[in-house]
């Protein structure tokens, strides 16, 4: 962070040097995590950055109450999550047509039949599109913990702080979400196998 290391905020707030240091430290430590969280919701780099910036603006405005924040990382993650969800709600619907599940599953089945390893198939665009569709089809209470866990490997404790639900509930929902994804994927692939045969 070359631009910020010389105290960019100090130009505006010469008297709040300690707050500025803390702010810069928070940006250094958490900006990527928050970006990942925002991206997991918005699936758009520009919007994810906008949400991250907005989160830090709010964080700066709350500087007089920083002492009351028990877990700064969780506070920032929760704020980012809410900002991203707000942006998602206000954002106009995308014009791109959603990927057809059957087409994506057919492509993966072909790759599987060709003997390509699962790791390689997983990195393919078709698989990413299929996974996105499957995740979006999950119920909201399962989708949110899964997205947060995928975003930046947030722990169950941190996810529970963000979503304000018990940690045990987070673990249970994550397990349920994975099970549903697996079942759906299996059904899709078996269905396309049957068609191909």
């Amino acid at each position: 962070m070359p631009e910020s290391s010389d105290g960019a905020l100090c130009e505006t707030f010469p008297m709040a040097a300690s707050s500025t240091d803390q702010m810069e430290q928070a940006v250094r430590e958490h900006s990527r995590t928050l970006y990942a969280i925002a991206y997991s919701v918005l699936r758009n780099h520009h919007d994810a950055e906008e949400a991250t910036q907005e989160t830090f603006v709010r964080f700066w405005r709350h500087r007089e109450r920083w002492v009351l924040i028990r877990n700064r990382r969780a506070w920032l993650a929760r704020t980012t999550w809410r900002v991203a969800l707000d942006m998602l709600r206000s954002r106009r619907p995308e014009n791109d047509p959603p990927v057809s599940l059957s087409e994506a599953a057919g492509a993966i089945s072909k790759l599987q039949a060709a003997g390509i390893p699962a790791d390689e198939i997983a990195a393919r665009q078709e698989m990413m599109a299929l996974l996105d569709r499957l995740i979006e089809s999950l119920p909201e209470d399962l989708r949110h913990p899964l997205k947060l866990s995928l975003a930046e490997e947030l722990s169950s404790r941190e996810i529970s702080d963000v979503l304000e639900i018990p940690e045990g509930t987070v673990r249970q929902r994550l397990w349920q979400a994975r099970q549903i994804l697996k079942e759906k994927l299996l059904v899709l692939l078996e269905g396309t196998h049957g068609k191909q045969q």
Binding site: Q53, L150, A151
Partner: peptide, 19 residues
């Protein structure tokens, strides 16, 4: 799916926006 990489200079842009 977990690794979205932000554009370079994210931290500087954040601090500029906050400022």
């Amino acid at each position: 799916r977990t690794k979205p990489e932000p554009a370079p200079g994210l931290e500087a842009r954040i601090l500029e926006r906050v400022r």
